[in-house]
Design a protein around this nucleic acid. Structure first.
Lengths: 215, 215
DNA sequence: GACACAATTAACCGATTGGTTCATTACAAG
DNA sequence: CTTGTAATGAACCAATCGGTTAATTGTGTC
């Protein structure tokens, strides 16, 4: 009899309870921020009680920390499914930009958690050993593209993978994070389906042109 | 005797008190967000009392609204001092990008207020008639560059001023807003003096290449 | 100087909220 | 069946916090 099967027979299932709390907390924190989130509300979203939150997570801030880590872990592991090694460098780069742009749009609550954490100046991310590790793969992916492109002459030799990643992230992140203020202040049509297609294409071209070696 | 001189002699000076409250509130809201900000703390930063805050501004949320409006008003009016009309279109565009990049870096607390407002999904910006008006000049500036560039053939005819503005804003905003999480997750050196110079130049090139008409 | 009203102060309050106490139940081991 | 321990529920609490009450002072007007 496997561990899992054993667990299934238990009425008590601590791991499921913790996962349930984490999911409920992620929703509440993403929606209202660290200070705006209410522990009672998190408890209400849960199949268990407020007491259990403190039993397993200690206090609100520790819970928030774990929610953040879990969000990063989940998002980066989704990204890892993208395989670009078989494509020519510039095609791989385009595919990476398109993927990143779409992926950010599809994960608004992750974006919101990162926004919130930046309002807190990264205080809760700072001490986490998990974060650097989990983000490393994103850099490796673009480093690989750059290395291959510099080898075959399609990408400029002075381009930096970190800078390129910064540009891709900036466009993809801002597109989601600031769409409210930007839409209100300037142009709502940029956030319709058509507008988003155009911004996606604009981002692709801007990134590719920044990387491409002129002939 | 001028109005101002008259006021100087008064012991009571309602306008100064309101401005003082607004300034204190801006600091506190930018630092801690809408829910994180404490009215008592705003009062403490003030030369007056908590009662006065409610006397002049009604409640916390109305105060926040006015702080936001005031921040937009101030930042956009600073930007208005930039005159680009005498430069060739692509030179004007470069100068605009450089200015925007630097200006965002120099106004972190405005960036923070906008981040916070986006966490709140733009709810407090939405109803404000001032916002659209005050932001119009930013678009007009880049529309002028595009129009001139399309006329003299230096800028592509299918480029959209709104999209270009989006790209400039994305890079310049993200550079400040996400520097904590990005620095921790990826590369702190991008946020040193040298790193920022490189990102500024990268942004310039990316924007200009997106706009330039190929020869 | 009396009056009307705007500006200001100090003390207060009820609701919310993060966190706790304590008693009870579920479970594996001997 | 007993016993030690992990998991859980219900009620509770002290502190915080947005907002208020009520009484006081300053200022221009007649």
């Amino acid at each position: 009899m496997t561990e899992t099967q054993t667990r299934k027979k238990w009425k008590q299932d601590p791991e499921a309870v913790q996962a349930n709390i984490l999911a409920a907390a992620a929703e509440e924190f993403a929606e209202h921020g660290l200070t705006g989130a209410r522990v009672d509300e998190i408890a209400a979203r849960t199949r268990t009680s407020k007491r259990m939150i403190y039993y397993y997570f200690g206090d609100k801030e520790s819970l928030y920390r774990q929610v953040l880590e879990e969000a990063y872990r989940k998002v980066r592991s989704e990204e890892a499914s993208l395989d670009l090694t078989s494509l020519p460098p510039l095609d791989a780069l385009r595919k990476l930009v398109e993927f990143t742009f779409d992926h950010h749009r599809a994960n608004e609550s992750f974006i919101r958690l990162v926004m919130i954490e930046n309002v807190h100046k990264g205080k809760h991310l700072a001490g986490s050993p998990l974060i650097a590790r989990v983000n490393a793969s994103a850099i490796e992916r673009i480093e690989d593209i750059c290395a291959r492109g510099q080898k075959d002459g399609s990408i400029r030799s002075d381009v930096s993978p970190h800078e390129l990643h910064w540009l891709i992230s900036a466009a993809s992140f801002f597109n989601v994070s600031n769409r409210f203020s930007f839409g209100i202040s300037f142009d709502k049509t940029l956030f319709t389906h058509d507008g988003q297609q155009r911004l996606r294409e604009l981002t692709c071209k801007a990134v590719i042109e920044a990387a491409r070696k002129p002939m």
